[in-house]
Design a binder for these strands. Structure first.
Length: 198
DNA sequence: ACATTAACTGTTA
DNA sequence: TAACAGTTAATGT
């Protein structure tokens, strides 16, 4: 979701800076705001019982996060953590609701955005239930490429580390490296000085 | 700090 | 039992 900053400001949004590694919200917190990234990257994650991290998503500029929680009376089931120093616009929940009421266009776009996420969540779930690691990696790359304009082959430069890819699909780095190497051999991706093109 | 390789272990198709 | 993901550890960029 990307809402015009002017509109957000006119409904009372505040801009705030976050340091790298700073929590923006934690599991169990009550949702109080709409969050939209102006600059920097944010990860949405969980830690399982033995402390292993699972990353749900990694977001960058012009993307929002946590917004589904503004429509249900629940606490966050995940954390949002700044990966890099970030500038983030925050719009309080009640003001966000006002905005949706007064600008039906933003409300409609919100629907489209949530639908896109729901669609890819489903696709990712199907891919994740595969024990074939290449299916999982490819599914993840498809998801991140879906935000990219140029759909042609090798046009998308993946901005994730091998470790982040592993944490996003529940595999080990070594496995991710092995799979990526095989995918390069099969001409599915291109690797240029460690950077992945899909 | 991130990526790669190698050698080994355990699981499973 | 051969393949292959995870583990550990060392090494490379």
């Amino acid at each position: 979701m990307n809402i015009d900053e002017k509109i957000l400001r006119s409904f009372g949004s505040q801009t705030r800076e976050y340091d790298a590694k700073e929590f923006i919200f934690r599991e169990g917190d009550s949702p109080i705001s709409y969050y939209q990234i102006v600059s920097g990257t944010v990860k949405i994650n969980n830690y399982n019982e033995d402390g292993k991290e699972f990353i749900h998503n990694i977001l960058s500029e012009n993307q929002s996060f946590g917004d589904p929680m503004l429509f249900v009376q629940k606490t966050y089931p995940m954390n949002a953590i700044a990966l890099t120093p970030c500038t983030i616009i925050r719009l309080p929940k009640s003001d966000f609701i006002n905005m949706l009421n007064e600008y039906p266009k933003t409300s409609f776009e919100m629907n489209a955005c949530l639908s896109h996420r729901l669609y890819y969540k489903l696709i990712m779930m199907q891919n994740m239930s595969s024990n074939n690691p290449q299916v999982r990696v490819t599914g993840l790359l498809d998801f991140f490429k879906s935000f990219h304009e140029d759909k042609s082959r090798f046009a998308f430069k993946v901005q994730l580390t091998r470790q982040q890819i592993a944490d996003l699909i529940g595999l080990r780095v070594e496995t991710v490296i092995r799979v990526l190497k095989r995918m390069e051999q099969n001409n599915i991706i291109k690797i240029e000085n460690h950077k992945i093109f899909y």
